[in-house]
C-alpha cells in the first residue's frame, strides 16, 4: 500500500496525520513496538502486561501507569522532565496517554525536531509533534530528556 493510501486509511485513528507532516521510514514489523523503538530497541516488544508475556525492564513496576513508563525510560538515562522544543544538547522521548492517563504510545525526537514513531506492529514513521494526537493514542502526557550521546 502506498503511504498516501495508508495515511488516508489512518484518518479515523489519527485525524491530524497528513502526508505533509509525516513520512514512512520502515515497513511492517511486529517484532517491536513504539515503546521499544523510542528506546532504540528493535528486538523486543515492550509492555508491562499483567500476563507477563512481553518485555519490561527488570526492576520497574509492571503496571500501565505513566510513572512506570517514566521509570522504564529513566533506566536509559531519560530522567529529566522537559518539553517538545528542539535542544541540540538533549535527546527526548514523548509518552502519550489516553483520557484515563493510561500510556498508549511513545515517540523519540530526531535531530530535525520531528519525532520517530512505531505504529503498533505496523510501520515506522517520522512526524511532526502533534501529528499522532487523536483517538488512537490520546495526547502527549510527559516529555523526558537526557543529555545527547
Amino acid at each position: 500500500m502506498k503511504f498516501q493510501d495508508l495515511v488516508r486509511a489512518m484518518q479515523v485513528p489519527f485525524p491530524n496525520l497528513t502526508e505533509a507532516n509525516s513520512r514512512p521510514t520502515s515497513p511492517y514489523d511486529e517484532g517491536y513496538n513504539c515503546i521499544a523503538w523510542a528506546a532504540e530497541d528493535t528486538y523486543y516488544w515492550w509492555w508491562p502486561d499483567p500476563m507477563g508475556q512481553h518485555y519490561w525492564p527488570p526492576g520497574v513496576q509492571r503496571e500501565e501507569t505513566i510513572e512506570a513508563f517514566v521509570q522504564a525510560y529513566g533506566l536509559r538515562g531519560y530522567s529529566e522532565r522537559s518539553d517538545a522544543t528542539l535542544e541540540r544538547s538533549k535527546q527526548k522521548i514523548a509518552i502519550y496517554a489516553d483520557g484515563n492517563d493510561k500510556p498508549t504510545h511513545a515517540a523519540r525526537q530526531l535531530h530535525d525536531g520531528w519525532w520517530a514513531s512505531k505504529l503498533g506492529p505496523q510501520i515506522d514513521i517520522e512526524h511532526e509533534f502533534g501529528a499522532l494526537d487523536g483517538p488512537a493514542y490520546g495526547t502527549v502526557a510527559v516529555i523526558l530528556a537526557r543529555p545527547s550521546r
Binding site: M10, P13, F14, N33, C34, I35, W45, W47, D49, P50, M51, Q53, H54, E64, K102, P103, T104, H105, A106, K118, L119, G120, P121, Q122, A136, Y137
Partner: peptide
Amino acid sequence: ETQWLSSTTAIA
C-alpha cells in the same frame, strides 16, 4: 481494530 496499538493489554 488493533493494528495501530502497542498496548498488549488493549490488543488482548
